[in-house]
Design a binder for these strands. Structure first.
Lengths: 285, 285
DNA sequence: CCAATAGTGTCTGTAAGACAATATGGG
DNA sequence: CCCATATTGTCTTACAGACACTATTGG
């Protein structure tokens, strides 16, 4: 209280005279162990279903169980964001743009979320959402003995998440996810649904070039309800920079029908005013 | 890979036979120390300014510097959310509803964000936003030798946050915030601005009963731009459950003018379709 | 020609922006 | 009455929902 009493108007910086001395003598001796991990909900669309990348854990805990890819943040060497990019590359073999496609979702800290708490280690995780179009089939990598895309709808998320909240485990018939990953994945899905409304995120789900119908199918798949085709087209084309026309190309659609005009991603990131679902998350009541 | 190979379709739970044995022998011996803290951006409106509760730190690091209230999560005993509620009560002396008024903002993990990293301790923080109407003047409590409300606009946030990102410190004339708290506070302000659009959050900023003008002043203050009064009224009253009429009461406004009708908070949480600012965060370019 | 999909036109209801007009209180 | 604020009314414009209609391909 005495030494740097006049600090108020001077601005910060931890490099004060007295404080430098304090730091020199500081030892973080008695901190009980927290572990910091990242978990990734990597989403894509395959055969008209929203799919998530899951790995089969090669190590304890939840060995041989299905889980979101992720891993430990390297102490002192990186942030959670950097760890997420690194894990993503390790898991998928792809390089990734950080700010564009990786979105910090939420941090999960409940002491009961990891069984290692019983041994005195509290493991907390920062969850991220990533989107992908056209990812190759995943390769099993470090600490995973298998990896595959799972349709999110097949995972019985709501029941799993509820079961987790109630009793800390789940015994249904769908693949059970390790830790609280069902909760994380449910939150991730809701985040993506919401972001489709007010961002151009949907274009990340489709390989270029794409038709307006392709883009509309993204909304249909993620929202679970189809926007009216004519109005959807009007909206997308009326937002400057949502999509830009691509030179006519050759594509062979399955059956007949008029071939669609093709587009690429535009430079816009926001959609304003937003596209609205019928039943958004919040609700009015 | 062998022991519980058939786990896939059986659902999770870390209580498997083999895994119980592993856990019994597990010791988290060699985990380098992470510390987990929470920081709170507690916002209110005072004399037509958006204000944040800051404390003057009584302990190192950044001793005697201004900072967001917060503290360590108790290892093994609580989640970040529970710690936030506890700290909030300790700092303000008020009980608080968790889900309603405390919102997890983001987690900050950059190794450079806390000087104790130099001593080998990586401190990460989960930031929360809380809103308040009618909070009493704060009392200095544990590990804080002073606490007061600061108008957010007086804190030179943008310059502080930029300076922090560039060089890890800030030397301007406004009160400098400890750690990366200028960044956190800027994120918090943007979160609140956005939430006013699609939630009934604004009612949390005004003491009951309130007039439509009181509510409009919240938007004016937080957004920095005034919604058109007539249209604003129409919108608020057209959303069911946004506000409910309160029985006529006695109030003495400063000057003359027709006395306003008074309302209380309704039960609705979402506003759909949303109220829109002119220049939202995302932007179209 | 038909089937199938893409794309256009148009009517309508809702709601926001702008702003004038009216109501209700205190000097 | 004058002032200040609240509240209502109304005209206009923007845009989403709905849906009929036209266009362009393959068989």
């Amino acid at each position: 209280v005495t030494a740097s009493g006049g600090r108020t108007g001077r601005g910060g910086g931890a490099g004060g005279d007295e404080e430098a001395g304090w730091l020199a003598g500081y030892r973080p001796a008695d901190f009980p162990p927290f572990a910091l991990t990242v978990d990734l909900a990597i989403l894509t669309i395959r055969s008209r279903s929203l799919c998530v990348l899951l790995i089969r854990r090669g190590e304890h805990p939840y060995r041989a169980g299905w889980a979101l890819p992720g891993g430990h943040v390297r102490h002192g060497a990186e942030s959670a964001e950097q760890a997420a990019v690194r894990e993503l590359r390790e898991e998928t073999g792809l390089t990734w743009a950080v700010d564009t496609d990786l979105d910090q979702l939420r941090t999960y800290t409940d002491p009961r979320r990891d069984p290692r708490m019983a041994a005195g280690l509290q493991v907390i995780t920062v969850a991220f959402v990533a989107l992908a179009a056209d990812l190759p089939d995943p390769v099993a990598a470090t600490d995973a003995d298998a990896a595959r895309w799972w349709p999110v709808d097949d995972l019985d998320l709501d029941r799993q998440a509820t079961a987790w909240a109630d009793q800390g485990r789940y015994d249904g018939t769908a693949p059970g996810l390790a830790f609280d990953h069902a909760v994380i994945l449910r939150d991730a899905r809701e985040r993506v649904r919401a972001k489709l409304e007010y961002t151009t995120l949907a274009t990340r789900f489709v390989p270029e070039p794409f038709s307006i119908s392709d883009l509309r199918r993204v909304y249909t798949t993620v929202w679970g309800q189809e926007p009216e085709p004519a109005n959807f087209r009007r909206k997308v084309l009326s937002v400057p920079g949502f999509v830009v026309p691509a030179p006519a190309a050759h594509r062979a659609p399955g059956g007949g029908g008029r071939p669609p005009a093709l587009y690429r991603r535009g430079s816009a990131t926001g959609v304003h005013p937003p596209l609205l679902r019928e039943t958004p998350g919040g609700g009015t009541g």
